[in-house]
Structures are given as C-alpha cells and as structure tokens.
Design a protein around this nucleic acid. Structure first.
Length: 496
RNA sequence: GGGGGCAUAGCUCAGUGGUAGAGCAGCAGCCUUUUAAGCUGUUGGUCGAAGGUCCGAAUCCUUCUGCCCUCACCA
C-alpha cells in the first residue's frame, strides 16, 4: 500500500476515538468565493463551508489557525479548544495538510483584518493517509511547489491539488467547449454522436489502434481516427448541419503537440463550400479568443498572436514560393527530386512519383516553422486529399484549407467531395499508392469504405466540412506549452 | 529510432572518490488573533535499478527503467 504509516496511525486513532474519518455528507451554505463576495452582509453571521486544509498554524495546544481551500478560493478558519468537546478537539489535533474539513461558525475579521471563520462546529470530512505536498505561499511567491513533471502528469489529481493554475486550465477547457456548443447551437447545428469503435477506419491518414470484438467472432476492429465518414453519412441522411466533439485515436508519435488520444471537433454544413467555412472558422476561433482571454490578441509563450479576423490566407504553393523560395510550378519532376534531396538527403522518393507528396514535404520542411500568426493554407495537391473536391479552375489542386497558429496545424477543412464515382476512384487510387509503399516502415494502409461510397451514391448535397483540434486550441488560449498540460490524463508509459 | 538533460527524505534542493545533508512537512515540547507564524529538540534515505572500476562509489564506467528537451518518422 502506498500509504504513510504516521497518517494510517492517525486514521486508526480517529476510529478509536469514535470519529468516522470518512462521513457521508456535509451541508455547505456558501462556497468560499461566495463568502468573500458577500462578506459585508455575512459578517458575524453563521456560515457553513467545506474545503481542504492547505496550512496549519498552531498556537500551543489551545488555538489553531488553518487555511482551507475549495475549488477557487481559500479562507482562514479559527479553532479554539473551549469551543469543542474533548473528542472533537482530539480530532482537530490530529489534522494534517491535505485533509478535508467542514466548518460551521460566524464570519469575523482578525485583528490583522483577515476574513476568518470562527469555528463553532467542526467536521472531519476526509482523513488523508498519504502526505499531500501542498506548497506554502507568501504573496505571489511559492515555496516547495511540487514541480516534477512526471509526477504532475501521472498523478494529475495531485497536480490539481497543488497548483491552482492547473485547475484553471481545465476550467478554461470546459468554458471553451461550452462556448463552442453555444456558437454551434446559435447557428442551427445539431450535436451528434459517432462511433468510437469501428470495423473500418478513415477520414484521416494515420495508423489506427486495433482490437477485437469477442461477440462478433473475434472480428478485428479499430478505434476511430476521425469522425469524418460518420458525419458525412448524417449529411446524406438529411441532417444539413451537424457537428461532434469527440476523441480520436492515432497510433503514432507522441510529442508536445501530439497525444495518441486527442479531442477533435468536426462540423459539416450542407450547401456551403470551403470559402464559407474559412469565414466561419475564423469567426468561431476569434470569438473564443475574445471570450476566454478578453481580447483577440493572445500572448502565447512570449509571442502575441492576433486572432482578429480576417486571417492571412495563402495557397500552399504560394507559401512554398514566398517563404520556402521554391517555385514548384516552374520545376520539372527531376528538378523537384533534386530540391528535395538538397533539403533531406535521406528522403525516400516513392514511386510512382507524386508531385503532391513533394509539395506536402516542402511545406512541412520550409514553411511550417514560419506559421506563427493565424494563417489559412489553402488549395493542397489532389494526391494528398482524397476526400476533397477539385479546385475550381485547377484540377491538380483541391479546395482545402488548414489553419496554422504558432507552427501548429489546428484544423483541416474541405469542400467535401460529393461525386460518388470520383470518390470511389480516389479512394482506390490511394489504396494502390499504399500498396506500392507497403514495404516502407510505418506505412498507413487505407481501407476503402464501400459503405461510405454507397452512402454518397445516394446523393450528398454540396457540403463544407471542418475539423478543429480542441487540445491545441486550448493550449493556445491557456498559454500551455504541451498538449499534456491541457489533457487531463495524458498517456504515459506504464509506471514500473 | 538518433542526440542531449534529469532521477538524493513526503516536498524543494545541496552534496563530483573518503562516516548521506539543509529548509519545509512529520514527531515531542513552549506560545490563546496567527498567516512562508516563531522558538527548542527530534524521527525519517535500497542516493531510480542492476552490474563494473576502486582499499573505498550518491559521485567514475556500462546496461536498463522513467520523465523532459530536440531531431527524425507521422501523405
């Protein structure tokens, strides 16, 4: 057991005293923030609050001051021996930092002017049997703040206990989700649920997590890598505006902007194209920035990001030309190959040669690191976008955009491909391309989802579809360095 | 997968070859309005794990584990 011996003994002493250290309920009259907000009218009135002990200041064996903390505030409480029975006083003497307590009594101000509750009735609400390393504070300075990142990620509850800012991140995350839902509902979108567990996967290029379904004769199944194909079925089925906020699972690398499981929002809106959705995307995200931080201008890790619409828009080819100084259209296949090898001698050219994949490579290597301010990168090569309509006026490109902020791709959107015959052909081509590359380590194999093709075959209206990476957005709006800081329980390697 | 860094008491950290330390927390006291409370005393360690070098290893070497950074991979 991971428990601390001295605290286990205290728990036993409490039991011996006839005190239940883990009672069933406690009625509070106010939260600590409410107490502070209404301290004038509540002065001298009896209140009832609950919180976790974060500091104990004992004056001999007769008087205590303690700090308690609830979700978003702290309060000093005063405990005096004369006010309690022997049993309760013994309980109080056994208190430790980390314990939960219920306090009833009048509000008053100490002679130093601090708002305090004079405890008349005391209840132990939970005895901790593991020492909780709560920091000490003086003003803004913190002392002995738990800082081992591994402990903070593995034991997030401890992170939340010991760092108010970590709780704040979760609060803001929830506010962002709530604002998004209000926005979407205000525009007539329907929130729908799509399967997490599927027999086929699609809508993105990623290796899936695999499992088996016992009840279906050990059928192989996959965790969703994207809700895209499910949501389009809703469009086909007659729902013109749908969205979902869900976990996606991609069995790939882990770094500060990638967790194997992450939260994605996707929406699909019939009768619109990617131009319409670009406007809507920047409206949604700029609204969130304003609502969450109070301004369109957000400071992230010493950089000011300006979300004020309209955002910069540039085609992927222009970005490569202007930022990367490579004019793809002016180069032959051979010249392109040469260029790629100048950048990365180890890059494996895959056959059949695909200029589209090279464009993607060039953008990643030459441009991505310069995408600081919100920028829409648009009109990607057809070869890397099998679910997207061709660009009007240029059949080598598609109508697609990816918004970038602080070097991170925070979304992906298309004028959705709705021609079922072309869709089938494009998925098939993608699969052939895979087949040519199966020897390459880590290659993704894209199944052709025939039911999805069948659905589109029954008629899908013109549709604009958009994905938005929630975790990365939360990172930007809460100024967190790693995706692990905004995911409550990030995946870590098994502990011992 | 490559490179770099880190791992010492519950927490924050010293300790670079010679008896494992400090502050806080804990424990025993003093102190009836304190607030990083204060004062006195004191318990507490498989120095991440295993192996090696050495008379002697927290310290040097090797391997392993975990975390962080970085590069690569991730259409």
């Amino acid at each position: 057991m991971p428990f601390h011996q001295d605290l286990l003994e205290k728990r036993q002493q409490l039991l011996d005293l006839g005190v239940n250290p883990y009672p069933y309920s406690f009625a509070i009259s106010h939260t600590l923030t409410e107490l502070r907000d209404r301290s004038q009218e509540l002065m001298e009135k009896e209140v009832s609050v609950a919180g976790r002990i974060t500091a104990l200041r004992r004056q001999g064996q007769k008087v205590f001051f303690a700090d308690i903390e609830d979700f978003d505030n702290r309060m000093q409480v005063y405990l005096k021996q004369q006010d309690f029975s022997e049993q309760i006083w013994q309980t109080i003497l056994l208190l430790d930092i980390g314990d939960w307590v219920g306090i009833k009594g009048p509000l008053f101000a100490t002679k130093t002017g601090e708002l305090t509750i004079w405890t008349k009735e005391f209840s132990l609400l939970a005895k901790s049997v593991i020492r909780v390393p709560i920091s000490k504070e003086k003003g803004d300075k913190k002392y002995y703040q738990l800082s081992d990142s591994e402990t903070l990620y593995r034991q997030r509850y401890l992170h939340w206990i010991t760092d108010k800012k970590a709780r704040e991140v979760m609060l803001v995350r929830a506010k962002i989700l709530s604002s998004i839902r209000r926005f979407m509902e205000g525009r007539g979108f329907l929130e729908v649920t799509t399967p997490t567990l599927e027999l086929s996967y699609g809508g993105a290029s990623a290796r899936p997590f695999e499992t088996t379904v016992h009840a279906l004769s050990q059928e192989k199944a996959y965790m969703r890598i994207s809700p895209e194909l499910s949501l389009k079925r809703f469009i086909v089925g007659g729902f013109p505006k749908v969205y979902t906020i869900c976990q996606n699972f991609r069995n790939e690398g882990i770094d500060r902007s990638h967790n194997p499981e992450f939260t994605m929002m996707e929406w699909y809106e019939a009768f619109t194209d990617y131009n319409y959705q670009m406007d809507q995307f920047e409206q949604l995200v700029s609204m969130l920035a304003k609502e969450i931080t109070g301004s369109y201008k957000v400071v992230y890790q010493d950089t000011e990001i300006d979300f004020t619409p309209p955002w910069k828009r540039m085609t992927i080819l222009d970005a490569i030309k202007e930022i990367g100084k490579v004019d793809v259209n002016a180069l032959s296949d051979e010249e392109l190959k040469k260029k790629v090898h100048e950048i990365d001698p180890k890059y494996q050219i895959i056959e059949p040669f695909s200029r589209g994949h090279i464009v993607d490579f060039l953008f990643s290597n030459l441009c991505e690191e310069h995408m600081i301010q919100p920028t829409f990168i648009l009109d990607h090569p057809l070869a890397i976008s099998p679910l997207t309509k061709k660009k009007r006026g240029n059949p080598d490109l598609v109508e697609r955009f990816e918004p970038f902020v602080m070097r991170m791709e925070i979304g992906n959107a298309y004028s959705e491909l709705t021609d079922p015959v072309e869709q089938y052909e494009r998925l098939r081509q993608q699969r052939e391309f895979d087949a040519d590359n199966l020897k390459k380590e880590g290659t993704v194999h894209h199944p052709v989802d025939l039911d999805f093709v069948r659905a589109i075959g029954m008629g899908m209206p013109p549709t604009g579809g958009v994905g938005l990476g929630i975790d990365r957005l939360v990172m930007l709006l809460t100024n967190q360095h790693s995706i692990r800081d905004v995911i409550a329980f990030p995946l870590l390697r098994r502990e011992e």
